[in-house]
């Protein structure tokens, strides 16, 4: 009866570049990247909902890729470069975040950090995304307050703003 899948096991060292800074931590080998961020590194901007890769609340960029941090082990981030919502917001509210506010996309807000990460990644990879492309690209991020229309509008406005600035 003492064997259980969540029983604490061995610890592993992790070193990574987190939001531009080198950090080290020693974490249990089974710990997810999400829990490492929240519990070991004290960065709670990345949210947890389903913990099984379905909702996108825990979205972060690992080596430039959008990942659900609940599906990645902390140990897998060793040697990687990680960008979280705290990193995105380091210099204050971004144009994209400003558009979220202006579009009324923020209701309860708990999904929003994940939405911002996914939207930022989309703007980087497909700056001229159509409405349908935006919907497709964002469909891994659930919002139970259903701000979907507002978020699409925010992304479109941010994209337009970046095109003008460029």
């Amino acid at each position: 009866m003492t064997d259980s899948p969540v029983r604490p096991t061995s610890e592993v060292p992790v070193a990574l570049e987190l939001n531009g800074e080198h950090v080290r931590a020693t974490i249990p080998a089974h710990r997810t990247l999400l829990d490492m961020l929240r519990d070991d590194l004290g960065l709670c901007g990345t949210k947890r909902c389903c913990a099984e890769g379905e909702c996108g609340a825990c979205s972060v960029l690992l080596d430039g890729e959008l990942v659900n941090s609940c599906l990645v082990l902390g140990a897998e981030a060793d040697g990687g470069a990680l960008l979280t919502i705290e990193g995105v917001s380091m210099d204050g509210v971004t144009d994209l975040q400003e558009e979220f506010l202006a579009a009324g996309a923020v209701q309860c807000g708990v999904c929003i950090p994940g939405q911002v990460m996914a939207a930022e990644q989309l703007l980087q990879t497909n700056p001229n995304a159509s409405r349908n492309e935006i919907r497709d690209a964002m469909s891994g991020n659930l919002c139970r307050c259903a701000s979907y229309q507002r978020i699409v509008e925010a992304i479109q406005n941010a994209a337009a703003g970046r095109r003008t600035d460029a």
């Binding site: 709670c44 901007g45 917001s89 506010l101 807000g109 929003i112």
Partner: peptide, 23 residues
């Protein structure tokens, strides 16, 4: 008027503390 949401900035930057975020 279309006043932006109170607490909105904390919500878009991840600074908002929901229950499980409080230490």
């Amino acid at each position: 008027q279309r006043v932006h949401r109170y607490g909105g900035v904390d919500r878009v930057t991840g600074a908002q503390r929901y229950l499980s975020d409080i230490t």
